[in-house]
Design a protein around this nucleic acid. Structure first.
Lengths: 160, 160
DNA sequence: ATCTGTGATGTGATATTATTACAATCCTAA
DNA sequence: TTAGGATTGTAATAATATCACATCACAGAT
């Protein structure tokens, strides 16, 4: 079950490598500019399967020699989100690297309140149920947010 | 279709009356304290089917003779949300009165980007799909956020 | 009726998250 | 090589949210 990645011990190095590789490819094929700040921002997000606030990112960027004012972080994050390389978690006002960039998107997010890990869950069923509900009201969905807070399997098993 | 209320012209007065009546009843039956600030906050939210920011509420409260510092609004809103009389819309960092207080809850929200109306949609199918997805990952959901941005029927029909 | 403890309110200060405005620089394409 | 747009940097500020603490209101015990 590749989707639960975030909740299991796994070869995390491959997450990072894959994330960056996809970004590079996207830059090549779509003519995007994966500049140093943007690349570094993605790297920072790829360290862990947690969501980081813009100011956490900013601090890390600043330590890496980039600018230290909020727009530096917000702009890089906006770029990554726009191109499907990262996601914004509304409930946390925070950002997380996308774990399946390229694949069709708009996942559901599962947020563990114990370990703070954020996983992407397949959301096809959820999306279609939501569309159906909206349809009956004549509402046209443009973009949806599906986020759940709870306990991940690892934390549920762990002793208190 | 009572659920699409927010997107249609309707007897809005009855929304307000019903909302307040339910709050009063809840106070009586559950021993809650529907104090003046809290009551007024609910009234303010019940004016329209839109989400209002905490500072919008605060301004209105202040004009009604209540305190003018943020905690005044945040505390009243927290109370209302806690007791199912209002909802927080994560995407908007804003609050809206609940339109079916008392009934089982955790609705999906449909947010019209044109007129800003917020409607509650039945979310049974969505919730169960989400639970199913979480189950397969061993994740236990405690609380979920389901919000969609799009265009409501009234705005879709309206000439540009 | 008064005391007493808990919950509610008010205020000031501050923390956190996000945006605006504008100058300097870098790339690309003609 | 040069004009134009995109990118980055910085300062300032806006918008959202919380903390700490004094005071006040009220229900239940005396």
């Amino acid at each position: 079950m590749p989707q639960s990645h975030a909740f299991q011990t796994h070869d995390h190095k491959s997450c990072k490598v894959h994330g960056l590789a996809h970004a590079e490819k996207l830059a090549k094929t779509q003519g995007l500019r994966l500049t140093p700040v943007r690349r570094r921002t993605l790297e920072i997000l790829l360290q862990e399967h947690r969501a980081l606030g813009a100011y956490d990112i900013l601090e890390a960027l600043s330590e890496s020699g980039f600018g230290s004012q909020p727009p530096v972080a917000y702009r890089a994050l906006e770029f990554l989100v726009e191109h499907g390389l990262a996601h914004r978690i509304q409930r946390l006002n925070a950002y997380t690297a996308c774990v399946h960039p390229g694949e069709p998107h708009n996942p559901a997010f599962l947020i563990c309140e114990a370990c703070k890990a954020v996983a992407e869950a397949p959301s096809d069923g959820v999306q279609s149920a939501l569309s159906a509900a909206a349809d009956t009201l004549g509402f046209t969905i443009e973009q949806s947010t599906i986020e759940a807070v709870g306990v991940c399997p690892a934390c549920a098993d762990a002793p208190l």
